[in-house]
Simulated assay, not measured.
Amino acid sequence: MKTFDNPVRDPDGPFDGPVTFDDVAERIASIPLDGQPPELRDLYARLMRGDAAGAPAGMGEEAEVGGVSGLLFRPEGGAGEAPRVVWLHGGGYVFGSPETHWRPAAAFAAAVGEAVFMPRYPLAPEALWPAPLQQSALPVARAVLEGGRGLAVVGDSAGGHLTLTTVLALAREDRPATVAAVFSPNADRTGLSDTREANSPRDAMNNDEDDRRCASIATGPVDLPDDDPTISPLVDDLSLLPPLWVEVGETEVLLGEARLLAERGQAAGADVRLHVEPDAFHMWQLWTPWLKEADASLARASAFVREHLGGAA
């Protein structure tokens, strides 16, 4: 698939021209994410934003949907209509924000031709799971659905987990999402995947130890077992999924559970499509517009979302 004409420009960002996976891996290695949550947040912002500070340089605007604040990204010439696409950002529920994820969200808005809203959900340890679901993702999704024009939920990493738990909860409320897309979703804590340990040395952006540490911080003392469906949506009733696009990298720690999500979803009768990107590590989409594979991933997912949202308009 051809990449789209990506309008995102970030002159103060970490790169100033086209890069490869190796270039991005080198940058990731130069800023190791270590320390307590406040340090992790600062380091992650530095990793993703480079010398940029404060609000995104161009395309985002402060907005509120369902009583939840966040950033709204519109395609060029797309002023006016309320958003139908909600992007739930990653960061292990411990770090990350609309400011660190603005480039892929803005690029997705351009590719899908729709406004994209990225809510600010509460982070751990200040707010423990399921606060992001109950206080942010579900109120936003319900508000979009009330507009009667359909709903697409998109998420990366922990935001992929939040996307899955959100659309499954909506289906149980008998107000299903129209479509969903997940990038490198964190979908299982029960040990079903065969790539968490195997790919830890290969995944430039993630490893099993750090992933589990974030999960422990996110849940805190909450007494939820690993096989609780809100912790491991892979063991939930996947027949409730809306049409779902899944993107995952070949070297990822989370490769196995993404494959299982597609297999189990399809076996349950859901329309689940899977793309495995050769040589890609966790959340490579974040490095748009400099990494061509990031643009291509966003183009694939946005085409799927656009196809389904078109029928809901």
Rank of each mutant, 00 (worst) to 15 (best):
K2P: 12
K2R: 07
F4Y: 07
D5I: 03
N6P: 09
D10H: 05
D10S: 11
F15P: 00
F15E: 03
G17T: 07
F21G: 02
F21D: 05
V24G: 04
R27Y: 06
I28N: 06
S30N: 14
L33M: 13
D34L: 12
Q36F: 15
P37G: 08
R41C: 04
Y44E: 00
R46F: 05
M48P: 00
A52H: 04
A55C: 06
A57L: 02
A57M: 04
G58H: 04
G60F: 01
G66L: 07
G66M: 10
V68C: 11
S69Y: 13
F73R: 02
G77V: 03
G77Q: 07
G78Y: 06
P83M: 07
G91E: 00
G92F: 03
Y93W: 09
V94A: 06
F95R: 05
E99M: 11
T100Y: 01
W102V: 01
R103T: 00
R103P: 00
P104E: 03
A106I: 03
A107S: 11
F108I: 03
F108M: 12
A110S: 12
V116M: 13
R120N: 12
L123P: 00
A124H: 06
E126K: 14
L128F: 13
L128H: 13
A131T: 13
P132R: 05
L133Y: 14
Q135P: 04
A137I: 01
A143D: 14
G148C: 15
L151M: 07
G160D: 00
H161G: 01
T165M: 03
T166Y: 03
R172W: 08
D174H: 14
P176K: 15
T178S: 06
A181W: 02
V182M: 08
F183S: 09
N186T: 10
A187H: 01
S193M: 10
S193I: 02
R196T: 10
R196I: 02
P201G: 07
P201L: 08
R202A: 05
M205W: 03
D208R: 09
R212H: 09
R212I: 05
R213C: 15
S216G: 14
G220D: 15
P221F: 15
D223E: 14
D223P: 04
D223S: 14
P225L: 10
D227G: 14
T230G: 09
P233A: 12
S239Y: 09
S239E: 10
L240K: 12
L240T: 02
L241I: 09
L241Q: 08
P242S: 12
P242M: 12
P243F: 13
L244H: 06
V246W: 01
G249R: 09
E252W: 14
E252N: 10
G256C: 05
G256P: 04
R259P: 00
G265H: 02
Q266N: 12
A268E: 06
A270N: 04
D271E: 15
H275D: 15
V276Y: 11
D279K: 12
A280W: 01
H282W: 06
M283V: 10
W284Q: 01
L286G: 10
T288P: 02
T288L: 14
L291M: 14
S297R: 08
S297K: 07
L298D: 01
R300V: 04
A301D: 01
F304R: 02
E307T: 13
E307W: 10
L309Y: 09
